[in-house]
Structures are given as structure tokens and as C-alpha cells.
Design a protein around this nucleic acid. Sequence first.
DNA 1: TTTTGAGTTGTTCGA
DNA 2: GTCGAACAACTCAAA
Length: 475
Amino acid sequence: MHDAALIWFRQDLRLADNAALAAVQDRPLLPVYVIEDEPGGPGGAARWWLHHSLVALGRSLAERGAPLVVLRGDPRRLIPDLAAQVGAAEVHAGRQSEPAARRRDAETHDALQRDGRRLVLHRNALLHEPHRVRTAAGKPFAVFTPFSRAVFAQLADLPPPMLAPDRLAPAPGTPQGLRAEEFRLLPAPPQPDWAREFPAHWTPGEAGAAARLAAFLREGLAQYGARRDVPAAEWGTSALSPHLHLGEVSPRQVWHAAQARGGAGLPTFLKELLWREFSHHLLWHRPEMPDQPLRPEFSAFPWRQDATMLRAWQRGQTGYPIVDAGMRQLWRSGWMHNRVRMIVASFLVKHLLQPWQSGEAWFRDTLVDADLAANAANWQWVAGCGADAAPYFRIFNPVLQGETFDPGGAYVRRWCPELARLPDRFVHRPHEAPDTVLRGAGVTPGHDYPAPLVGLGEGRARALAAFGAMRGGGG
DNA sequence: TTTTGAGTTGTTCGA
DNA sequence: GTCGAACAACTCAAA
């Protein structure tokens, strides 16, 4: 009989293709999740997701014979205690890229080692190992295209995903698993319940992830190249981000399933998975990325912090329909389409000159997929201070973006119902509509829908001037 | 070490 | 209405 082992679930809440689980599935097993109440932990929307995902994981584990134990507190103390309690020499877990998680794991490993035990980390959340992918000069990548070539070459012989174990043996001395009365340990649903619409959009958990993946491959992958930019398209994007974030499905499962399906949209879709890898690569090597601009000269950028502007943007009251539709989709569903994320981010950072960190924080609190690496990397990209960032003069025009990617206004009409009856010609520019048109559509100007926070020409010129000031005088 | 080519996602202006 | 050029110059990766 093998020694008992702990499997410590974190961002790999699945049984299939779980390298940490596979390493110990033949031993008496104690599966554990530790809820850490740390500042900088998951935001409200992500906590909603985590709650339901843990319930799902707990059920699957219980069905297989090894109930999940959920604890709340500091894992540096709880994990070694638990390992001692069941006599486990090893604790297995998936590797994480977040700086706080890496610190915590190092300290947990030290604590275990003092008792002659060890923490064994596995690649579970990524296709590549951030410390094993390097440029020819031995440095981490800072440009996407060469990074993607290097990773793609490595993935040619990616092994197929592993199946979920059928039966698991509980470790003797296992404390009680997740029972109904212990659900109070789980993150509470937010109050007031702004998440009330989330269940209509999402099914957290491994089964929900598998269903979403299958549906996307069936309905969306073939057209992905063109339709991914249309926010009103039902299967335009995979919407797998929250499932991937908590590891309810592994990137390897997605990669293999997409390749098996094939089709015209495949290369673009695989490239998006590699953007996720790239973000984690960056965070691994630049742990300051969530707070500090990767290009240091941006520390001197003349932001104009303004709580009123920020709040109008957060609530979807900027006066630009595609921006407001996106921000309201985010608030109500916990998610926003990728194209619209770029538009709203560019608007906040450039037209409103609010620091990208404000937008990053709001996204992290309201997105169900709130992935620290992807969120920080993409905000920095839009702001122009990130890796491979957009040139500063690339300023999205929210009206043109709306008219290009939401031509009939279906997306705007869905999330901004007060604009639903405007004719196509004005649905993305209600501020230019004559009063007769507005009244005919049931819109009272300045009452039902706000006037633009800033003129597009003015906002653009101000952003260009701010960048110029940073380059010229700031640094 | 030096050199060279390349680099997610745009907009505006003028011919 | 369409098209190409300008925007501004820099860093990175690899030969």
C-alpha cells in the first residue's frame, strides 16, 4: 500500500487531465481546497464562480469516494497540519503564476519540509512552463510572435489529455468532507445579489466547462476567424475564459479538442490560447505587472484621475453606446466580449485619461474570468505600456468600432434598451441624432441616455498630447 | 557584437 | 467612395 497523499486544489478544479491528481490517484487521498481571505484575492464575480465550482468539484469527488475538504485560513499552516494528520509525505498541486501564490507555495513548501514532507507542483494551468521557454539568448520573451513560434514548436508532440479517475480511495483519518453545513465556508454570494443573472449565462464546474467547449467546437470554431469580432454573434467566441481561469477544463484539453475538430477558424483560436500562455509567461517573469507599467517611462504619464469619470465608465454611462453596452454586459453577466473589452479599455485610458490600473481593478472585481495575468497584460497592452503594446497613436474610436463590429446595433440594443428603437444610422451616435429622431425612438436627450463624457476629437487630441508630454518632458 | 527585420486587434487625411 | 500613407520611433529576437 502506498503512502497517503494530499491533493491541494487551487486553479485546477477538475478531475480529468489533472496532472497533480494523476500523480496520486492510486494512493489513499485527501483532496483539499483552502479559502484564503487575503486582500487581492478573487473579486466579487470570481467568488460567485468559485463558490459554484467548489460545489461541483465536491460532488464529483464525493461520488468517486474521496470527499473534498474545504478549509478557510492560511494554507501555510493548514496544509502541513493536514498532511501530518493523515500521514501524507507529499502534497501535490498545480503550479500557479500569480506572485502571491508563488510566495505562498514557497513558504508552504518550507513549512512542509521542516517535517520531512514536500510540496510537488505540476503543470496544470498552462501549455508551457514559463521558466522553460526562453529566447536564444536565454531571456524570457517580451514579444508575442516569437514566443508563440517557440511554444507552438514545443506543442507538436503534446501528449493527449488524461482521463478522470473512476475511483479514489480516501486517506484514513480524513476529516469530514464538504457537507451542507460546511457550505458556509464557501465564499458567500454577493449581497445585494447583483449576480442574480449569472446563472442564466453560466454553468460553473467541470461538466459545464465540457459542455461549453463542445458547443463552441460545434457551433463556433469553423467561423471563429471572422465572427470572433462580432459581439452580438452567439458563438462568436468560446467564452471559455472563466472555465479556464479556475481550471475546470485544461488548456491541453481545449487545444486537443480544437485540433481534432479542425477547420478554418482553428489557427486563430489556437493563437488566442497562446495569448493566454503569453500573459502568464509575462507575469511569471515580471511579477510587478499587475501594478507597475512594464515600460518604466509610463510612470511619468500624466493621468487625470477623476472618480466621476471612472464611475460613469463603470456604470455604462459614458454616452458612447458600444462602451456603455460593454460595461453593462460586464455588470450583469460577469463577462464582456473581447473586442468590446478593447474598446472600453481604450476609451477609459485614452479618451478619459484614467490610469489603466483603475480599469484593471474594476475588471478584476467584476469579471467571472478575472485572471490576474491576462487582465494585467491586456490592460497594459491597451495603455501602451505593456509587452508588444499598441503604438500610442492607436486610439479606438468607439463610434467607428461600433459601426464596424456591431453594424445593425444588435449588441447595443440588447444591453442599452433605452436605445433599442433608434435607427441603425444613429444607434452608435445618438449624440448626433436630431431631436425628432430621438423623440421618435422614445429617447429624451440627456434624460434617458447621457450626453458624451468627452468629444471624440477632443479626447483623442488630449490623449496624444499626454503621450507627447510623457515622452518629451516626463522621463 | 552588430545588424537587420519585424512587430494582435487603428484612425485620419488627402489624393 | 476607396486607397495608401502618415502617425513616431523603439525594442526585441535572431542571424
